[in-house]
Design a protein around this nucleic acid. Sequence first.
DNA 1: GTGGTCTAGACCACC
DNA 2: GTGGTCTAGACCACT
Lengths: 129, 129, 129, 129
Amino acid sequence: MEIQIDAASRQPIYRQLMVQIREAVARGRLQPGERLPSVRELSSRLVVNPNTVARGYRELEQEGLLNTRPGKGVFIAEPKTDLTKRSRMKRFQELLDEFLTEAVHLGLTGDEVVSAVTTRTEVFEWQNR
Amino acid sequence: MEIQIDAASRQPIYRQLMVQIREAVARGRLQPGERLPSVRELSSRLVVNPNTVARGYRELEQEGLLNTRPGKGVFIAEPKTDLTKRSRMKRFQELLDEFLTEAVHLGLTGDEVVSAVTTRTEVFEWQNR
Amino acid sequence: MEIQIDAASRQPIYRQLMVQIREAVARGRLQPGERLPSVRELSSRLVVNPNTVARGYRELEQEGLLNTRPGKGVFIAEPKTDLTKRSRMKRFQELLDEFLTEAVHLGLTGDEVVSAVTTRTEVFEWQNR
Amino acid sequence: MEIQIDAASRQPIYRQLMVQIREAVARGRLQPGERLPSVRELSSRLVVNPNTVARGYRELEQEGLLNTRPGKGVFIAEPKTDLTKRSRMKRFQELLDEFLTEAVHLGLTGDEVVSAVTTRTEVFEWQNR
DNA sequence: GTGGTCTAGACCACC
DNA sequence: GTGGTCTAGACCACT
């Protein structure tokens, strides 16, 4: 599990951590049941305070992405969502519009975006259903 | 130009302003050369501190999206991208991966994402070239 | 807003805080939109570290019970739940069994429990629907 | 005596054990005088550390729910309540308010709660007196 | 060994 | 003024 922290970023360290773990899970690089590095180990590797790593782990646990078992370590949880379909789709629409807005400003064309999305979806692990 | 501020949001007001202006430009609702409401007018309409509106405008100007002509007002700038094609594509890839990561965790399928993106791109104003 | 902290309790301080705020909201003593004491004020009143109060507030925000607006303060959020009916009822059944188990061990009778529940529900603010 | 341990739970294993034994007693599935499996037997069946089982038993003994007779085994104790009626009712009121608080936030109505409690009390084993 | 809580104190962002 | 982040370091609970 490789993690890169950019101390100069305006994004908080614990959030950089969360983003990277979420992405690794979404791409199947981290599987349910798999163990993450301990708070102490990761904090010393990244040269940040243990509390900072613990906070990232804690928030991901609250999201339901991780399980922590005191004395054992931190693990990837089984996927499950308790959110309603309605609230999930609403959130997705917001994200989609933000994403397309940025793409416009970066000077892409609509075709380029659709094509990039189509290609890139294959790298992620979508739920079967 | 309608702007909705959610005072209860965790996102700073000046950022909500920026997001909505950027999106209006991306969707062609605001055209280059068009004049925005003055800081004083907009701040009184939204019932927020003038400093807050000024800050949103200032940061959008730094991004190159707006031009302020002292004594005249604030205008949508002509589109120009000073980032290199290479660095813009790199940024786009990052955004794409974050977007797809969230979509996975929201429980969508790859097909649903591609289909939603394809439909929604039609609503935005892409550069011709 | 009165809050009592028992430093000798085995329950963490930030959780004692959460329990009391949740109860005040459930009983309608704190209404949506109402402002809570600032982190600094409450921490000095309770003689605990500001981080401890901030953590309680932060977790209640993640639950959707509070909104914090940096620079403004902390407020009771509008009620809304994005959880599915199914997951909410499952959670309720668990709580009910734990509650009844404790009641048995405290030596109450079934009738006493039903009667106490019936009386006490009137003090809480149930959603209209 | 069936016991289910959820290794992924955030609740400590010895506490999961305690909760389930308490509930089994409360529902009359375990009767006073009945013998529990030995620490070694139960720990090997649940595939947990014997210390963990021993700790659960020890704490239940301190609560007065179990009696350990060295060399003989562990037994369900005769019900006896050393708390005063007054302090037991005080504790019950606390639990009741916490329970109702959660029910409010889960979006139930008062009627639903009373009805669920009324139905479910029939499944538990209340003291006769 | 593991994670969880709390304190003390610094610095930043927002309004 | 407000909350947010991070560090350093202590102590506790669990396995």
